[in-house]
Every structure is written in C-alpha cells, then in structure tokens.
Write a protein that binds this DNA or RNA. Sequence first.
RNA 1: GUGGCCAUAGCUCAGCUGGUAGAGCACGAGGUUGUGAUCCUCGGGGUCGCGGGUUCAAAUCCCGUUGGUCACCCCA
Length: 455
Amino acid sequence: MPGHTFQSPTGTRDFYPADAALRRFISESWRSAAIRHGFEEVDGPTFEHLELYTVKSGEGIVSELFSFTRAGGEKTYALRPEFTPTLARLYAAKANSLPKPTKWFCTPTFFRAERPQRGRLREFMQWNVDVIGDPSPAADAEVIATCVTLFTSLGFTPKDLRVKINHRAALAKWFDSRGIPEERHAKLLALLDQKGKLSPRDFTVKLAEFGFTPEQAEVFQKGVIRVELGSGEGELTVLGTTVAREDIGVPTAAGESLDLTFFSEAVRPLALELSQAGVLDWVDFDLSIVRGLAYYTGMVFEVHEASGAERAVAGGGRYDNLIELFGGPPTSAVGMGMGDVVLALVMKDKGLLPDEARLMELAGQRPDVFVISNGSPEADAQVRSTVAMLRKAGLHARHTYKATKNVGKLLQDAAGQKARFAVIIEGPGQCQIKDMAGGGQRPAAISEIVAAVRR
RNA sequence: GUGGCCAUAGCUCAGCUGGUAGAGCACGAGGUUGUGAUCCUCGGGGUCGCGGGUUCAAAUCCCGUUGGUCACCCCA
C-alpha cells in the first residue's frame, strides 16, 4: 500500500519535545511530593497475568482491558489498567519483612480499553500513593496531605481545587441508624453517586424510597459539610450546614435537616488529623462522594476543580480487605491515584502550565551555552573545540546548524533554543559572553566561560 | 458497546449553489544593518484522512471506513 500513513492508536499520544518535557515535569513533581512525605518508589511489570485483575473485579473487567496471549502460548496476559493488584502482590510476597507502615508510590503508565473522551485516554500516567499497614486516620490524612503538597508545588490554592471526603463505614452506620437494611446500602450508594446525572426532581423521588424527605434530599443534592475546629482544646464541630463559601464556588447546603451524629463520630478523628497536617482548608466533607469501587471500606475521597469543571483530578480511599484478597495477611491500607491527563487539563485551565523554557529548565534540558562565531575564519575554527571543552566540563552546550554567518540570526537561533547564555567567539581565546535573559554582555577569555556559566 | 459533531501544508484556517488548491505563521536558503529586531528575495512542502459511488467534472454531494472530539455506559 504505497502512501499508507500510520496513525497512533486510538487514545494514545505522541510526545514531541515540548510534550515530553511537560510529562517529565508532572512525573517529577509527583516524585518530589511523595518523597517529601516519606514514600519510597516501587514499580512492577507493564503487563500481568489476566487473572490478577479478574480476581478482584470479576470477568466483566476483561472488556476494559488490553489482554493478549503470546503467539503459540497459552497464558493470557493484560496490560496493567491500575496498580493496586500489583501493589498487593508485591506486598503480599514480602509482607513479613516489610516495615509497618509501608509507604510506597509509583508513577507508571496504565492502559484501559475505553473509548477516549475529555480527560480519559487509553494510555496514561498515574501517580499512586499507598500507606499499607496503618489503620489509623493519620494514614488517611497522610495520603491527602501528600496530594495537597503536590497541588501547592504546582501553584494551586484551595480556591482552585477541593478535596471532597466521605466515609463508607460512617455512611453505613448512619444508614443503619435510620433503619435502612444493609442489603439496600449498595443501591443507596449508587444513587448518591448518580446525583449529578439525575434531575433534582428524580433524585428527590428516588431518595424518598429510602425514607428521606425532600428537604433532606436537598442537603444531599448540595451536600457539602463544613467541619470546623472549635476554639480551645482542638474540639471539632461537624455541622449539618456549610458556611457560605461563594468565593470558592462551593454550594451552600440547605439547612440543618439531617441528623449526622453517626457520620460526625467517624469523621471527627480524621478531621483532627487533617487539621494537624495543615490541609483542612482544602477539604470539604461531601456526602455524595461514593467512588465506584466496591472494595473501599472507610474514608473515600476525590479531588475536584472547585467549580466542578473537568473530571476528578484524583481519587482514593481506604481498602482494608484488599491485601488479604490477593493472598497477603490481613492488612489495612489506604491509597490514591492521580492521572496526568486531567491534572494537565486543570493546570491549563488555571494558567499554571509552565512555559517552554521553564519546562526545559525543570526537565534539565535547557542549554547552558550556545556557542557562535563572529564570522571570521579564526573564530569559526574554534567553535567545535569550545563546545567540546564546555561539554567535557559538564555543561549543556550547543552550536548552530545553520549556514548563515549573520550574528543576529545566530543569536536568534540561540534564543529559539532557550539557551541561558550565548558565547560569541571573537578571536584566539577571546569571546563575548551574553546573558540571554538579561541581555547583558561582556568580553571574556574562552577559558572563563565555564566559571561564568556554571551555577 | 451507543450517539452528536469534525477531518484541506508542520500550526491556525479560507476555499460560495460541484469546474481539476490558497493565506498567515512556522520551517529552509540567500542578502542587508555586527547583537535576539526590522526589511528584501527565493524555496520545500497537500493525489484535500482513506476507500467506493453519483457526475462530463468532486476538497465540495452520497455511502462506508479510519482517526479526532464531546457525551452516554463504565470509571480500578
């Protein structure tokens, strides 16, 4: 087929230099935040046995996976769609010799056979942060605080992003206290999860089947709960209403028409931990955050853009039964995942994407020196050897590939490649060193360049 | 898996009711002013995503397909 052109497969991306620099910037930001919080980097294979995924999620998951067999082979594999099963496998294999808690993170690539749409692709990077073996709310708060550290490092504020927290176990107790039978809990959770997609009318009608009044339905509908630190002895008050926060676009709840005693009992210790971690101002308690996963056992959370734009930036929660499910000892765990796709979208929305020079800088790819000749044959003869000398000294040095001897065009070339300094060779051992950012320029010996440019 | 919209140069797009393809920017070469600018000249590039159909004639109309995009399902 002459003239046939190849396109990248559906839902995958090509990373040209600027894209690769952004990707590296994001993954480095992830690493840095996790390491600051004491997490250690791990990783596993890009593909696993298919059964690793069907054990947890059932056969239904297979249609969402890229699975394959080796030609002539019998085993079925799948490209990894998430990290938790691999994490559980790694932990289970060495559980006895690992510290408690074990704090691991990774920033790998995942694959899901879904139809791509805004914020969702078939190949993406995801930051995973997990605390294994610590059942306390302090571990829950640690995961969220790590998230917040990242947001802060990227330039976000609590007005840009909200961490929305709920508690599965607390909800269950609370439902019990209202006389809702346990077998109906899942259905009610599913209904809460559907909140945004149902009309307020339909939502109210369906909630009524569980014994909630229209007023109470409205609390769910708008349902952000404000947790406040009481004055003095670190007391916490969980209110059934929010304080108006129009400035960050969080809706105000309808009134104190729900008894949230049970909920507040479970949430109080977590709120205290979040307060001590210094991140409570990023947090809203939101009754409608459910998460799809059946395996969450306690705290669950999602991070959303404050006005509700885009998909969830991050999500996670406590899964105290999962390690055991994968063959490990009974072990509590809490973790979260954050994808690069939505994160980059929200950064762009907020004007927080660094420019190209900054990205190259952050990725360690920005040229230190761009060596050009003033056009004389003697200077021409020294360009290569000067570049080689600078590289030997550990600097990132470049020269032009253009034919022109026009100094202005060569400086343009240097600027286009975002070089920090330009060096114009003037004669034997002599040059001008030009600071491309400030524009200042001074004569110097070629032997002085390294010291002048190194930082 | 279902549906809406979209597809012309590297990028942003123009191309009317069908008459055999353009601009700006970018890129490349050269020139000028010794300094990232301005200006001038020249150039590479597109079988109009792909395949079929209607027609004397298709970028344009029709069907299919691939890809993109947005939503549904799902969302680990």
